[in-house]
Structures are given as C-alpha cells and as structure tokens.
Amino acid sequence: MVSRVVVGAHYGLRDWLIQRVTAGVMALGCLSLAIYLALHPGLDYQGWRALFSGDAVRTFALLFMLCLYYHAWIGVRDIAMDYIKPVWLRLLIHVFVILTLIVYAIWSVQILWGY
C-alpha cells in the first residue's frame, strides 16, 4: 500500500523536460530582445510600440510569457516541496501560486492585445 501525500510532483520526466524546453524558449526570447535593443539604440515610445504591434512579435511574446509562468510554477513548486513541511500550508501555497500565474497569463494577453 503506497500512501502518497499531496506534494504536487509528478514523479517523472515530464516536468524536468518542460523546465528545460520553456527555459530554451525564454533564452531565445531574451537573446532576440537583447540583439534588437543593441541594433536600435535610442529606441523611443513609437519604436517600442511599433515593435509590439506586429502579430508575430505579440504571439512570440505571449509564448515567452506562458513559458515563463509554467517554468515559474515548477520552480516555486520545487522550492515549496523542499522547505515547506506542513502539507496544508504547502497546498495553500501551491493553489495560490497557480491562481496567481493564471491571472498573470490573462493580464499578459490584455497587455499585448489591449491597447
């Protein structure tokens, strides 16, 4: 009889892989933004807004942010699993982090498409 406590982990390869794939997407995003900013010194509001008005940039920016939220979830979950011992408190933190990240995802769509 295996009695599993609610810890939030999936005991498998999946999260490990997702953590690395999302990290790759974000690294690519950071690099492309850094290159763009290096090639366009003295970028003003018009230029900044023009960059984010293209659908391709908006879509990739949203992909970046969703990767960030999934990545953050796995990371924060691992930290909570390691340091927070009372199960009820850990569960509470997990639920709070998940809901916060979902709200961030909705907010991100509003930021990118809402102006």
């Binding site: 509001y45 900044w48 807004r49 984010f52 960030l68 953050a72 990371g75 924060v76 930290i79 961030y104 907010w107 991100s108 930021i111 990118l112 102006y115």
Partner: peptide
C-alpha cells in the same frame, strides 16, 4: 533558487512596467 524566487516575486512589477511602457506615451 534565490534568483528564480526573486524573479517570480517581482513578476507583477515587471508586468506593470511592460503595461505602462506600451499603454500610452504618457505612461511611457
């Protein structure tokens, strides 16, 4: 770990900054 947690905790601030930078010329 610490830097990851710090970045997670400052996410709302970063999102707010992105929103302000895009919303209008005044907020920018």
């Amino acid at each position: 770990r610490a830097s990851g947690l710090l970045l997670f905790l400052t996410l709302p601030l970063l999102l707010l900054m992105l929103e302000n930078s895009l919303h209008s010329a005044q907020t920018y």
